[in-house]
Write a protein that binds this DNA or RNA. Structure first.
Lengths: 137, 137
DNA sequence: TCAAGATGTAACTAAAATAGTTACATATAA
DNA sequence: TTATATGTAACTATTTTAGTTACATCTTGA
């Protein structure tokens, strides 16, 4: 399963995008997400590294560096991943067994296709879509 | 991320499918997978519950109940899931914040679409495909 | 200039998920 | 009736996930 970091990251970006003139601090975001400000700063650090937002130590708030319509959920997802593989494969199957020897590479191929289908869909969704849907609530 | 149970389950089914006349025991499977036999029996229990294989206490071996071409990876995947949600959403966002109040249901919709795309792809792949690819190795 | 308040980050803790192991009940069949 | 298999509960170890504490550093207004 995919952890809550992606959800929190989208929450962060949504708050920044919908309040472009206010100073949305990590403390403020933390209260909306309902977590510790350090959790927010950790994720915002990754979003910063990915070039999605900017910030400066000492200066309150974050700035969105791209239009919400230009930020796909795939981009956010990938900004947070350290391991790019969605599916885990069991390690060290028996190389003396015909199947054990080859199962990993076959699974790898299968999983790559599935992950690709997921990512294609995540690339269709943008931060603008999320904000739009929030607005209709 | 999706844990190794799916990979092990496919490994199990492949061994059973390609050795229909031999008695493939959980001990034998465990040696090919390189894990403990109890891990195999735990997963085979879930495959049994899903109607994919049959077995009997005391009687060695497992029987495939469907043709490999009729067993999709999605079916195997769903046989193992206790929680059907692929993406986790952070709990208890602030209901006093406009975004915190609505983010969960919006994310839920977005994630459902992504998961659906993944599952559609997993439904295309069958155990027969896996065996075929193993054969070309 | 300096104090208040912000970001950045390392180090630690707690809880949950994951994988593996031990032990044993129960069924089968030679 | 004994050897061998599946089924399963209970326990342990490891890793991942999330949250917390502590503090260095930067910015800015008084």
């Amino acid at each position: 399963m995919i952890n809550t970091k992606l959800s929190v990251a989208i929450h962060i970006l949504t708050l920044i995008a919908t309040n472009p003139h206010d100073r949305i601090t990590s403390d403020f975001i933390a209260k909306s997400v309902n977590t510790n400000p350090v959790v927010i700063r950790r994720i915002s650090g990754q979003l910063k590294q990915a070039g999605l937002i900017s910030s400066q130590a000492g200066k309150p708030g974050f700035t969105l560096l791209k239009a919400p319509s230009q930020i796909t959920i795939l981009t956010v997802y990938q900004a947070l991943q350290t391991n790019e593989d969605l599916f885990l494969i069991h390690q060290d199957p028996n190389p003396n067994c015909w199947i054990g020897k080859n199962i990993q590479s076959v699974l790898d191929t299968t999983y790559k296709q599935a992950q690709s289908a997921l990512e294609k869909e995540l690339a269709q969704q943008t931060l603008a879509n999320i904000i739009e849907q929030l607005a209709t609530h």
